[in-house]
Design a binder for these strands. Structure first.
Lengths: 350, 350
DNA sequence: GTTAGCACTCTCGTTCAATGAGTGCTAATA
DNA sequence: TATTAGCACTCATTGAACGAGAGTGCTAAC
């Protein structure tokens, strides 16, 4: 795995093989390399080098008389040392800009749109995890009497996030009590971040208020519920069927298997969630994922958010034979856009 | 197409052919029919009848030495005259009940769940269009000052539907003006159904209120927006990849085509929306759909809602070789459950 | 009107040989 | 010593040939 396990020439050859294979999806032979990339080497020499590379585990042969294909180890070396990150084409940038141009005020729309763009640009499956907002500031908690039997609890957090919940009750409740409650709530809760709010404390507060327990309790529950919803990470996955475009999944059984797997939101969520703890850009190539269904897939993830505080994750899932260079540049580009929009939306509320 | 275009025997034979084909997905031959279904007829007789049925267009031959498969016309006759609607198995009812058992208060959850159940039970693709709520009653419109710069508009409709929208502004607004606005709104709007509210009238209302135009206007827009959201029909589609289970789509190209088509939410939405105007149970078989991609698919739809007022649509999309009988019973059953739940949620608010 | 029988058609799976891409090894070359 | 030309070998893929099997249509007999 070390850089100098391979000499200059071996590296060049390995890169050629992988580049070619990513493009063609066909095992690549020694002659192809000798011709296409002018290395000034004969095919026989390359064959020898390839034999070495195979012995070291960077490439494999599907069968004796076929060319070579990269192994997971090969891809790993490639993404760490060899690949070129070619910048996005002008048209692609235009497409992205245009898609992002719409004025978006709600954060979930933003996330959704981002995943959509990514899957379109890369042609693979995109996953986006919405911000984990345990640091979000609660702006306001309000109780509204809809009619005699119903109360609406509204919780507003920074970034224009609003959640609400309806409560049915059978008590007569005085307008003034509601106002009192609202005031109290706002004193204790507003301006705090979610992780600063302690629910037990909240529950102790009411003393001089004439609202029966049967109502107060559901109110607390509703508030907690709203806060939980704010804090909860949403999760979008887009372009699942894109994988059908790639020959490695032209076998229907395999395609089904992978599709079914990608539909398991929980699994994918977990996968992406793990990556949140990782560094900026994280690759999991083929069997580096413990999950069996992922053995022919790679996932590239990165975190987004304000510097220092990573709050969400975006990722791309595709075949191990993925255009890593392009995906990396796309994902980075989107990340920056996302960061910028987030600042616009949240301002200092994060 | 007429009932008596086919005599008793032809009908029986046609039914046998279709039943068999639905089960096996294989062209069915004369001997199979003669043996399986004890009609007391030899295969040669059946052959003759089949030739007639073919001439009349109810069945076709993929090639000379193969059995017969139903044509769209055949299926049409089948669903109108021949098919048996076999009731749901006990286990299936248990599954449905269990899934529906969760307490659901939000209508969109209900719809989502319904589509999920349908696709699970039938094994096909389910589409559910949420209620069109132009008859929904607006319960309350409320303005909330979140902080000095932001107002929250909350619109509550019957059935626990709540929508809100945040407004940013730069004016100083008095607490008492907000209260005045709230009162006025509730006088004019609350208790009315959406189609009774006329927006122009709404816009004329404020006279003695000290809120600048720059704020009033966005408020109206926000209210309109919320109302529009309430009225808008949501749309869920579930089990898209189910079609991969059926041999008619084992050809990857075809499968892709159909999958891509099903992902076109707009198209499907339109398809289902058209059905809303139709009678209780509507079938579109194969090429009866004008859309080319649907030529191998059928869609069965039905409307749900309170008697007289149909408000939403549920449907199942599958191969023309669909287990029509079973789908019909499932869809009917779910419809009843849905109707019941809707009454629970909306009460008299519809 | 029904059916047994038969010739005919067409698909499908299997076998077999030819093809071609690619390898590994060896011996010659620089 | 490193490179390469050459050659024998391997193996997947392709296409042709072929037989088996399923099913039909038609005819003649019941």
């Amino acid at each position: 795995m070390a850089w100098d396990e391979l000499n200059e020439r071996k590296r060049t050859i390995l890169k050629s093989i992988i580049d070619d294979y990513i493009e063609s999806a066909q095992p690549v032979g020694s002659r192809t390399i000798a011709k296409k990339h002018e290395l000034g080497l004969g095919s026989a020499t390359i064959r020898n080098e390839m034999a070495d590379l195979e012995e070291l585990g960077y490439i494999t042969q599907p069968h004796t008389s076929a060319g070579r294909i990269p192994s997971d180890k090969g891809y790993r070396f490639y993404v760490e040392n060899l690949m070129q990150i070619h910048s996005l084409a002008r048209e692609e940038i235009v497409i992205i800009r245009k898609a992002m141009d719409e004025k978006i005020e709600e954060i979930n729309h933003l996330i959704k749109k981002a995943s959509n763009i990514i899957s379109n640009i890369t042609g693979y499956t995109a996953v986006v995890m919405s911000p984990q907002l345990s640091r979000a500031v609660i702006k306001s908690v309000q109780l509204l009497a809809i009619d005699e039997k119903r109360l609406l609890v509204v919780v507003v957090a920074g970034g224009g996030i609003v959640h609400n919940r309806l409560i049915k009750h059978d008590s007569l409740i005085d307008e003034s009590d509601i106002e009192k409650l609202n005031k109290t709530f706002n004193i204790i809760i507003s301006g705090k971040t979610i992780d600063q709010i302690s629910m037990p404390v909240l529950r102790e507060l009411p003393r001089d208020i004439n609202v029966p327990k049967e109502v107060i309790f559901p109110i607390f529950e509703a508030i907690e519920d709203c806060v939980r919803k704010i804090e909860a990470t949403d999760f979008y996955i887009d372009g699942i069927t894109n994988i059908l475009n790639y020959p490695e999944f032209s076998n229907l059984m395999k395609a089904r298997e992978v599709l079914d797997f990608l539909k398991e939101k929980d699994l994918i969520h977990q996968l992406v969630f793990e990556a949140t703890k990782k560094q900026q850009l994280d690759f999991k190539i083929g069997s580096e994922n413990e999950i069996d269904e992922m053995k022919d897939l790679s996932i590239i993830t990165t975190v987004y958010g304000r510097e220092g505080k990573d709050i969400g994750t975006i990722g791309v899932i595709g075949p191990t034979r993925m255009t890593y260079g392009k995906v990396v540049s796309s994902i980075k580009y989107i990340r920056e856009l996302l960061n910028r929009e987030l600042i616009k939306i949240f301002g200092d509320d994060l």
